[in-house]
């Protein structure tokens, strides 16, 4: 991050890219506002960017439990119709979505 000193930690192009990755659409005003706000927040985070953390283990989680397995016994699942009744669109016991590939029919 050599441009950190310039204070432009993230620019509009990067924000637009991140928004696209997160499946969000921003208009021009939002893009400008969010770029400014995200840059402020990342500037604040510069304090940890500057820390020497060589040799410090990362901590992704406070509980050191791994691979919790339940007994391999069938239980009652949620009722399919009840779950599908909450979906925006369902058909034949499945979620219905618009075409995933190619042009719309």
């Amino acid at each position: 991050m050599d441009d950190a000193a310039a204070g432009s930690r993230i620019d509009a192009e990067q924000v637009a890219k991140v928004a696209a990755l997160a499946r969000l659409r921003l208009d021009d005003g939002e893009l400008e506002r969010f770029t400014h706000q995200l840059a402020d927040i990342l500037d604040h985070a510069a304090d940890i960017e500057a820390l020497d953390l060589e040799g410090v283990e990362p901590m992704a989680h406070p509980v050191r439990i791994v691979n919790v397995l339940r007994a391999d016994e069938p239980g009652a699942p949620l009722d399919r119709d009840e779950v599908l009744s909450q979906a925006p669109a369902a058909e034949d016991g499945q979620f219905r979505v618009p075409p995933v590939l190619g042009e719309a029919p």
């Binding site: 940890i48 820390l51 953390l53 410090v56 990362p58």
Partner: peptide, 9 residues
């Protein structure tokens, strides 16, 4: 990655 190490600190 750094934030997770700060968590350890």
């Amino acid at each position: 990655g750094k934030a997770l190490r700060v968590r350890t600190l």
